[in-house]
């Protein structure tokens, strides 16, 4: 009871004193050096920074894909760092959608099956799956591509299927790690616009990383990282 009350008041994502040190043999790589930040519901936030600044590492921590060396991540007030692999998988299934830079989709499954997979694991009925996914495919302009395998689609189309899959599970948060890195600028722009529109329409919180200034321009909030530290946190006042 008190937990859920706390969940209501707490920020959607809260990162506290987060550190992540990678050990590569003798060498210690301090990928994150004490990150503190909060993301509220419905935000459309970019993590910006040069390559190696720690964007992927940070997103992995938020998405429960990896554990911090110290500090913690809370989602809706609930500590998600340090869960078992099985607990984390369950948590992700229910709460977080992912879009990765590339190789998002299972190559042997069609676009539809890729999107459906998560819903099947959630135990959603066939009718409901259609009720959820049909409009999404329509929305991203891939209604005709449901039966295609990933290799039969362009990179932009594949990323859009990944967005459908991420949103299909009806998550609180969609985390996207350089979703446009492998796309040309026109395709990048349209993918970003699509994500932004879905963010507005559905109120889903997006956190994505990029080092592309053109993409950063479209974000309403930009958190800049450098060498594992937050160096700037700017909000677009107009939005």
């Amino acid at each position: 009871m008190s937990d859920s009350a706390a969940g209501e008041d707490a920020p959607l994502i809260e990162v506290r004193d987060l550190e992540r040190i990678y050990h590569q043999g003798e060498v210690e790589v301090r990928a994150l050096r004490g990150i503190n930040l909060k993301v509220e519901r419905g935000e459309f936030t970019a993590l910006a920074g040069p390559s190696g600044s720690g964007k992927t590492t940070l997103l992995n921590m938020i998405g429960c894909l990896d554990d911090p060396s110290s500090g913690e991540v809370r989602i809706e007030g609930e500590r998600v760092s340090g869960m078992s692999r099985t607990q984390a998988a369950e948590y992700r299934l229910g709460h977080i959608g992912f879009v990765f830079q590339a190789y998002n989709l299972i190559p042997v499954l069609t676009a539809w099956e890729n999107a459906e997979f998560v819903l099947l694991m959630q135990g959603v009925s066939r009718e409901e799956r259609h009720a959820i996914l049909d409009p999404l495919f329509e929305r991203v302009g891939l209604a005709e591509y449901k039966d295609r395998k990933p290799h039969e689609m362009s990179g932009g189309q594949q990323q859009r299927v990944a967005v459908v899959r991420a949103l299909g599970s009806r998550p609180r948060i969609v985390l996207a790690d350089e979703p446009t890195a492998n796309l040309d600028s026109a395709t990048s722009a349209s993918l970003l616009d699509l994500m932004l529109e879905l963010n507005r329409e559905r109120g889903v919180t997006f956190v994505f990383s990029t080092h592309d200034e053109m993409v950063i321009e479209r974000a309403r909030r930009v958190i800049r990282l450098d060498s594992g530290r937050v160096v700037a946190d700017e909000r677009d006042e107009g939005a």
Partner: peptide, 8 residues
């Protein structure tokens, strides 16, 4: 990827 999207 499978585990990321929630496969235990």
């Amino acid at each position: 990827v499978l585990m990321a999207i929630g496969v235990s």
